[in-house]
Write a protein that binds this DNA or RNA. Structure first.
Ligand code: SF4
Ligand code: SF4
Lengths: 134, 134
DNA sequence: ATAATGTCCGACCCCACAAGTCCTATATTC
DNA sequence: GAATATAGGACTTGTGGGGTCGGACATTAT
């Protein structure tokens, strides 16, 4: 519990890989999957999300692949998680889904206090960038 | 993802409840389950774990129940999670299970860098106590 | 022009694990 | 000894993360 999802880990591994190559270098999903022994199709999905999220650019066709769209120092881990998971890393489901997310919502005594934790978490993930994991 | 488990939430709600009552006050699982609309049997299990973990004391038999074993200001959220989940809140499974936990272990490039994140997380959960969620 | 090689994307399956339930034993009070 | 509490093993259920498949589209090389 409280673990990063595999998808996020794969995404970070991929981004780190790209960040280490000389700027503008194109890398394919196959390369990444082989190099780190990651499940190809899954990684492909992740890369597509990263494109939609604007952190990498894609080049289609033969000789295609992916390239970073931002400087590693600008790639916040928080953003990457949000892009891959479709939501920020939240400490309680009601924080993402609102009152409908949990039947305890209205008589939950820890919801507000957990806000502190959440804020601190946000800071933590906002501070860390891909640059730092090189 | 990254959410606290329901068990932990229930545990925190229960502990908070006890922390607000005058010192030494005995509270039963039934009371707690009714008051906050929590699943009785599940909550019972959690309370038993908290007893084993030494954060609450149990009194058996009629007129029995639970009472805090420590001051709210000493009840760290980190400990509570560890007691209920049988392990600390970890950012990656290899941190709890070691090399056997993840087949990527030996050629994982983000394992070490994530250590920073883990340390910061530890600090976060170690700092927060039940006192703070009152 | 067509084959090769890449991304794009929806639909689907699988299963480990969180969450919840049931049932019985044991301790304590009145 | 009846009532009420915890203790704890065994079990079922539901969900979502992780993984897979198949086909469409884009680009390049020959
Ligand atoms: S309402 Fe309370 S119990 Fe429900 S998700 Fe939010 S914090 Fe957790
Ligand atoms: S080895 Fe890498 S991928 Fe596997 S759990 Fe640890 S950090 Fe995550």
């Amino acid at each position: 519990m409280l673990q990063l999802s595999k998808k996020v880990e794969y995404g970070l591994i991929a981004l780190r890989h790209m960040a280490m190559k000389p700027n503008g270098n194109v890398v394919t999903t196959k390369e990444l999957a082989n190099e780190y022994d990651l499940p190809y199709e899954l990684l492909a999905k992740i890369m597509q999300k990263l494109v939609k999220g604007g952190v990498v650019r894609s080049l289609q066709g033969v000789k295609g692949g992916y390239t970073l769209a931002q400087k590693p120092s600008e790639l916040k881990v928080a953003s990457i998680i949000r892009i891959i998971e479709d939501s920020k890393p939240m400490v309680a489901e009601c924080y993402t889904d609102g009152p409908d997310g949990c039947y305890l919502f209205y008589n939950c005594t820890i919801r507000r206090p957990l806000g502190k934790l959440q804020r601190n978490l946000n800071v933590l993930f906002d501070r860390m960038t891909v640059q730092e994991i090189i």
